[in-house]
C-alpha cells in the first residue's frame, strides 16, 4: 500500500494534494451551517448518477417519452426508486443550494476577497433552476406539458427578445417534438457541462482562498 502511494507521490506529488485538500486549516467558528455547500455537492453527484441511470432507458420523443418513463417506473429493477431519488433530489438541490446562498448572504461572506466565488455561485443557482425547468417536461405528462407551456408563454412576454426567446425554447411556434428533444439536450448536455465548469471553478476558489470565517461585529474602526 505504502509502495503504491509512494509511486504516485514521486510522480504527481499526491502528498501535496492531500495537504492542500485535507490538512488545510479551517478558521475558528465554522459550524454546522457551513455543511450546506458540501451537501449541495453531494446532491449534484446523486443527481448525476440517478440522471445517467434514467437516461439509459429514456426516449426523448413525444410518442415514446411517456411510455419509457412508465417502463422505467414499472419494469426496471429499482426504477421507481431511482426516479424518486432524482425527483426529490432535484427539489432538495434547489432548497440546499438556496440555503447555502442565504447563509453566504447574511454572513456577508461574498465580500472581499470572495466576490468571484459569489458570482459563480449565483450562476450555479441559475443553472440548477434551469435543470428543474427543463427536467419537468421530460416525462411528457400533463403536469410537465402545461407547466412548460406557461413557462414558455411567460418567456414570450419579455420585451424585444421575448418572441424569439420563446421560439428558441420551443423550437418553433408550438410545444411539441422539437421542444422535447431540445429540453432533453439542454438538460443532459448543456446544463451538466455548464454546471461542472462552474462548480469546478467555485470549488477551486473555495480551496484556494479558504472557507470564510464567521462574521465579526464591526468595532467602529473606520478604514
Amino acid at each position: 500500500m505504502k509502495k503504491i502511494v509512494d509511486w504516485f507521490d514521486e510522480r504527481i506529488q499526491t502528498r501535496e494534494i492531500k495537504e492542500t485538500l485535507f490538512d488545510r486549516k479551517i478558521p475558528k467558528g465554522v459550524g454546522w451551517i457551513y455543511a450546506l455547500g458540501s451537501a449541495s455537492l453531494f446532491l449534484l453527484i446523486l443527481q448525476a448518477v440517478t440522471g445517467i441511470l434514467l437516461a439509459m432507458s429514456y426516449s426523448a420523443a413525444p410518442d415514446h417519452a411517456y411510455a419509457s418513463v412508465q417502463y422505467i417506473t414499472e419494469q426496471i429493477p429499482m426504477g421507481a426508486i431511482i426516479r424518486g431519488l432524482h425527483k426529490w433530489g432535484a427539489s432538495f438541490m434547489v432548497i440546499v443550494v438556496t440555503l447555502h446562498m442565504i447563509r453566504v448572504y447574511f454572513m456577508g461572506a461574498y465580500k472581499f476577497p470572495r466576490e468571484l466565488t459569489w458570482v459563480l455561485g449565483v450562476l450555479i443557482w441559475l443553472v440548477v433552476i434551469g435543470f428543474g425547468f427543463t427536467g419537468y417536461l421530460l416525462p411528457w405528462d400533463q403536469k410537465g406539458y402545461w407547466a412548460t407551456m406557461v413557462g414558455a408563454n411567460l418567456a414570450g412576454q419579455a420585451p424585444f427578445i421575448g418572441e424569439a426567446a420563446s421560439k428558441v425554447l420551443r423550437g418553433g411556434e408550438a410545444l411539441g417534438a422539437i421542444t422535447l428533444t431540445r429540453f432533453y439536450a439542454i438538460h443532459v448536455l448543456v446544463l451538466p457541462a455548464s454546471l461542472l465548469t462552474l462548480v469546478g471553478l467555485h470549488l477551486f476558489l473555495v480551496v484556494r482562498q479558504g472557507i470564510s470565517a464567521p462574521p465579526e461585529r464591526d468595532k467602529g474602526e473606520r478604514s
Binding site: G31, W32, Y34, A35, L36, S38, A39, F42, L43, L46, P62, Y66, V69, Q70, T73, A80, I81, R83, G84, L85, H86, K87, W88, G89, F92, V96, P139, W140, D141, Q142, K143, G144, Y145, W146
Partner: peptide, 29 residues
C-alpha cells in the same frame, strides 16, 4: 460535520423517494 449532514439529507431524500415516489400524471394532451 459534512458527512453527518449529507447522510441526513440522503436519508430524507431516499425516504421520500420510497414513500412518495415520483408521480406520473396522464400523458400530455
Amino acid at each position: 460535520k459534512d458527512t453527518v449532514v449529507v447522510f441526513l439529507i440522503f436519508v430524507v431524500v431516499l425516504g421520500l423517494a420510497i414513500v412518495k415516489g415520483a408521480e406520473l400524471e396522464e400523458v400530455a394532451d
